[in-house]
Design a protein around this nucleic acid. Structure first.
Length: 749
RNA sequence: GGGCCCGUAGCUCAGCAUGGAUAGAGCGACGGCCUUCUAAGCCGUAGGUCGCGGGUUCAAAUCCCGCCGGGCCCGCCA
């Protein structure tokens, strides 16, 4: 088991920190600041430095001038005191502008680093952070209504990298996928599939995605058709009223509006089939202009009120019309893409009310475990799941298990949690419908743990309540629909408890989009209120920002997404094109390389930026095979292996590492020694991108070395041996980093 | 309206938690390097008001306040 003292840099740092502290307590006993020691941003300055001199000077000086002098003096003192001792692994110490700069003695340090890496091998970078601790990592959990797309893929790759990281530092990790089979959307899908006489074709999850998009779009279209009819009816009513008002008006202002209104009103009455939709916008704009310029002051209050009422109506109508237009566009798109499915469904689904009723009825039946419906839903979700696993298998993502939402409902676990909340007195009931609602707003006033979850102080809350500005408080959580079926977040509360109790989890990572921050907070609040405050603390929402398409938002309902399979296909194709140009490779190997490179490229692209950063999908980025990419790392690894292979993998037992005097060699060694730091940082912050960054910098340094200095033909045998071991240490470290990221490792490229 | 995330080179991103030296990579542009361990590479050049404005500090990309821009959330959706 690798502990801290196995890592030379950490050992050195600890030692230096102690020595700094000794000097500090000897000479500045009243200074309470901890000694700082950092890695230099630039090896031109030094390797490590401390700014303790500034901290102490701050306390001792009154003005700027004195401060500078103090800092210099203190730094001098530190340098003098420390230089007097013989510090292992330190070549020299100097004061530069008040910084205490340390220079590593690479003649010794290099050997320590390289040898420790080679002896630890696949354990290099390992920590004993998570011994005997269980972590549940829930990730991917896709809605079973569409294939895994680029958005879900960020989740999968992130969750998978986190599980590799946590395993690496000693946690007992179980990955779970939550199968969200109880959503209303699944019911829409089920309804669509039950109406389709067609045999599924293609990959099952892709087929499901097509059907769902069609059903969802048809349902939207039906909704908007009725809404538009309603708008038209109300438009005519308004115009009629206006006609009368205008007739009665003494001082009719001779405006464009009145004329236009009259004309439109006349036309609509005369020709009911005229394209009235466009008129709405015209009238709206004229009216907006008038109201803005306050040109209606002279007319009667009654008419003015009518006009304002009309304006509000038009504003709403306009919004709806724009939405409707966008759905009509989607409608046309889908009809063109999948005419067979779409037209079938369009014929079968003619009435919105029937659709809604049927869908609701399916949901109730499924929730109650109706055998027929159960069979249908489970079949669909299993098909989807099968497709997901096939896709994820391409990028080597697997799960330790699957949890079906419906099981939580059928087992009564959801009911249990609702009852607990009720018995604890935290449920209120909607006056009209009687649906149960979790009273988070009262909890905010009474329960400190809930305030903490929402990062709100009691003062702030009282202030909001006093101002009667309740809308700016976090909202209460509706737990059930009025038809008695459960809601997603409610079921998720039961699942959270399940994860902790069934798996004895010490920590639960929920890898879920940042758009679900509020429900995740509500969930944790519910745990507190149900009497599980310790559970709430164990649950961490690993939030990542969603992936956006360059053109529009990802929307499964609109069939607008880029399937992960498609991305992998493209990446493979591009990689193959490249590999095809390489000499001396069998077809089989070419294919193998293309696949691995594609996975490397895609995983790298999805992991390379911090999860909190919004990502806009970019083909060039995902298909990047050059620098700053997965393939670049894979290539660097293959190059290192290539050297070792030429040496027939015969490595010397030891070497004279003081022969490694080149700057780039020292840089590589320092970088290698920083790997444990990168791991620790990545785990603590739950950010695999830190490993990506690390690996990239390391590989850049290695490639620079590779290009400039021969290993096998080094000038002396001693140098050759030292470099061979350096290459081996690099290979091990990069391999460990790549396996944490799930980027495939290739011996040859 | 309230809340969360993001804003750093033409583009994609590190650096911000814990303030520290000359703000780093890659892509793209330009100029070089394959008879030498794999050129998916390397070397060099150009490119920055760290969104804006205040404040704290010896020191601010980093901390605080206020704006601006982009995204998301505030559903009996998930």
């Amino acid at each position: 088991m690798a502990l801290e003292h196995d890592y030379p840099l950490r050992k050195l740092r600890k030692n230096l920190e102690n020595l700094l502290l000794n000097v500090q307590t000897d000479f500045f006993p009243n200074s309470s600041v901890p000694p700082s020691l950092e890695i230099s941003p630039n090896r031109a300055f030094c390797d490590l430095f401390s700014t303790i001199s500034f901290q102490i000077a701050k306390m001792k000086s009154k003005n700027k001038k004195e401060y500078k002098r103090q800092a210099m003096m203190i730094a001098d003192l530190f340098v003098k005191e420390l230089s007097a001792k013989k510090i292992p692994l330190i070549e020299k110490i100097e004061n530069k502008n008040g910084y205490i700069n340390f220079f590593i003695d690479y003649t010794k340090f290099s050997g320590d680093v390289i040898k420790s890496i080679i002896s630890l091998n696949e354990k290099y970078g390992h920590f004993d952070l998570g011994r005997n601790k269980n972590v549940i990592i829930e990730h991917t959990s896709p809605n079973p209504i569409h294939p895994i797309h680029i958005g879900t893929a960020r989740n999968s790759v992130l969750g998978d990298a986190l599980s590799r990281l946590f395993r690496f530092v000693g946690y007992n990790v179980k990955t779970r996928m939550y199968v969200d089979d109880m959503g209303r959307q699944v019911a829409y899908l089920a309804y669509g599939i039950s109406k389709l006489p067609l045999e599924p074709y293609g990959k099952k999850d892709h087929w499901i995605g097509m059907v769902y998009s069609c059903v969802a779009t048809i349902s939207e279209i039906l909704k908007y058709e009725t809404e538009l009819m309603d708008i038209k009816k109300r438009l005519l009513e308004f115009l009629n009223q206006l006609d009368e008002s205008l007739l009665n008006e003494k001082e009719i202002p001779n405006t464009k509006l009145i004329k236009t209104l009259k004309k439109i009103s006349r036309n609509l009455k005369r020709y009911p089939t005229i394209n009235w939709i466009e008129k709405v916008e015209i009238i709206f704009n004229i009216l907006k202009d008038l109201l803005a310029k306050n040109q209606i002051n002279r007319i009667s209050t009654a008419l003015k009120e009518k006009l304002i009422g009309f304006f509000d109506f038009l504003k709403e109508a306009n919004k709806k019309i724009n939405n409707a237009r966008s759905w009509f566009k989607v409608h046309a798109e889908l009809r063109e893409r999948w005419p067979l499915i779409f037209n079938h469904l369009r014929k079968k689904i003619a009435d919105l009310r029937t659709l809604e009723n049927e869908v609701s009825s399916l949901m109730i039946k499924y929730e109650n475990g109706d055998p027929e419906v159960k069979k249908l839903f489970r079949k669909i979700c299993n098909d989807a799941l099968e497709g997901f696993l096939e896709t994820l298998n391409r990028v080597s993502i697997t799960f330790d298990g699957f949890d079906w939402e419906s099981d939580l409902v059928w087992d009564g676990k959801v009911k249990v949690i609702i009852n607990r909340l009720k018995n604890a007195g935290w449920i209120i009931y909607d006056e009209e419908t009687g649906v149960p609602i979790l009273d988070i707003r009262r909890a905010l006033q009474e329960v400190p743990e809930v305030r903490e979850i929402f990062d709100l102080s009691l003062e702030k809350i009282s202030q909001i309540i006093k101002a009667n500005d309740l809308d700016s408080l976090p909202p209460n959580l509706v737990l059930m629909r009025k038809d008695g079926t459960t809601l997603y977040t409610t079921r998720d509360i039961a699942y959270a408890i399940e994860k902790i109790s069934r798996f004895k989890a010490d920590l639960v990572l929920n890898v879920i989009g940042a758009d679900q921050t509020l429900p995740q907070k509500q969930l944790r609040s519910a745990l507190v209120l149900a009497g599980f405050p310790d559970y709430a603390k164990k649950i961490i929402h690993v939030a990542y920002e969603l992936v956006q398409l360059p053109s529009a938002k990802i929307s499964a309902r609109r069939g607008r997404f880029i399937a992960f399979d498609e991305i992998l296909d493209e990446a493979e194709e591009k990689a193959y094109e490249f590999v095809a140009t390489l000499p001396n490779k069998a077809e089989e190997e070419k294919l193998k390389i293309a696949k691995a490179v594609a996975v490397g490229a895609v995983r790298y692209a999805l992991l390379s930026s911090a999860p909190t950063r919004p990502m806009i999908f970019d083909w060039d980025r995902v298909l990047n095979l050059e620098s700053n990419s997965g393939p670049f790392l894979q290539y660097s690894y293959a190059r290192a292996v290539s050297i070792l292979r030429k040496a027939e993998f015969k490595l010397p037992q030891d070497a004279d590492f003081s022969t490694l005097i080149e700057d780039i060699e020292k840089e590589i060694i320092l970088r290698l020694s920083l790997f444990p730091d990168a791991i620790e940082s990545a785990v603590r912050q739950m950010r695999p991108d830190i490993i990506v960054e690390y690996a990239n910098k390391l590989a850049i340094a290695f490639n620079s070395f590779y290009q400039r200095f021969p290993v096998l033909r080094a000038k002396t045998t001693e140098l050759r041996n030292a470099r061979l071991l350096l290459v081996e240490a690099f290979r091990i470290t990069l391999r460990n980093a790549l396996s944490l990221l799930g980027i495939p490792i290739l011996e040859r490229m």
